[in-house]
C-alpha cells in the first residue's frame, strides 16, 4: 500500500528525471494541451464578460482554428518537401 509520504516522493521524483518521450507521430499529440492552454488564456483576457458556456464555446473555436491551421501548415510543408526532395 502506498502511503502519503511515498506518493509525495513519487510525485516529486517525476520532476527530477525526464519522461520517456519518443520521436513518434504520437508525440505530436503533446501539442494539444499547450494549444488548449493558449486558447484558454487568450480568451480569458480578450472576452468582455466571462460566462461559462460562451467562454467554453470561444475556447473551442480558437482551439479548433489553431489545430486546423497547424494541420494545413503540416500538409503544405509535406507537399513542398515531397515536390523538392521526392
Amino acid at each position: 500500500m502506498i502511503n502519503s509520504l511515498n506518493l509525495c516522493q513519487y510525485v516529486l521524483a517525476g520532476f527530477m528525471s525526464p519522461m520517456d518521450i519518443g520521436t513518434t507521430a504520437k508525440g505530436l499529440l503533446l501539442a494539444l494541451p499547450l494549444i488548449a492552454v493558449i486558447a484558454i488564456v487568450y480568451k480569458a483576457i480578450k472576452l468582455e464578460e466571462i460566462k461559462f458556456v460562451s467562454f467554453l464555446k470561444e475556447v473551442f473555436l480558437l482551439f479548433g482554428s489553431i489545430l486546423v491551421f497547424m494541420i494545413i501548415t503540416a500538409i503544405v510543408l509535406f507537399v513542398i518537401m515531397k515536390a523538392v526532395v521526392g
Binding site: 520532476f15 525526464p18 519522461m19
Partner: peptide, 12 residues
C-alpha cells in the same frame, strides 16, 4: 498547468 506539465516532461 502548462509550467508543471513542462517540468514533468523534461524535469527541472
Amino acid at each position: 498547468f502548462a509550467f508543471v506539465l513542462g517540468i514533468w516532461f523534461g524535469s527541472i
